[in-house]
C-alpha cells in the first residue's frame, strides 16, 4: 500500500493514483519514424530493477500527471515532481 506524495496535494493513499508507466519520448514527425523505432516507443521500456522513473497520475485527486522516482524492488519513493520542473528524466 503505497503512500504517494502528489506534488500538489501532498501524501495520499495509492487508491487515488494511476500508474502511467515509464515515460518515453514520442518520436516525431511520425512520417520519418521507422517501424522499429515506433515499436520501441510503443512497447520497449528499460524496466530497471531498482531506482526507476515513472509517470503517475493523481486521477482520484487533482488529476495531474507527475514524475516519480521509485525503487521497483523496495517500493521506496525517493521524490515526485511536476513534469518539466526538475531533474527526473529528460
Amino acid at each position: 500500500m503505497l503512500n504517494i506524495p502528489c506534488p500538489h496535494c501532498g501524501p495520499r493513499s495509492e487508491y487515488e493514483f494511476q500508474f502511467g508507466g515509464e515515460p518515453a519520448t514520442r518520436p516525431i514527425p511520425a512520417s520519418e519514424v521507422s517501424d522499429a523505432q515506433w515499436s520501441d516507443y510503443l512497447y520497449a521500456r528499460t524496466n530497471i530493477k531498482g531506482r526507476n522513473r515513472e509517470l503517475w497520475c493523481h486521477s482520484g485527486g487533482c488529476g495531474q500527471w507527475f514524475l516519480m522516482e521509485r525503487d521497483t524492488v523496495t517500493h521506496e519513493i525517493f521524490r515526485t515532481e511536476t513534469i518539466g520542473s526538475g531533474t527526473i528524466g529528460a
Partner: peptide, 15 residues
C-alpha cells in the same frame, strides 16, 4: 484514506 488534517477548516480535497 484521507487524514483528518486534509479536511481542517478551509481545506478541500478531491478523493
Amino acid at each position: 484514506a484521507l487524514p483528518p488534517t486534509a479536511l481542517a477548516e478551509g481545506k478541500c480535497a478531491q478523493t
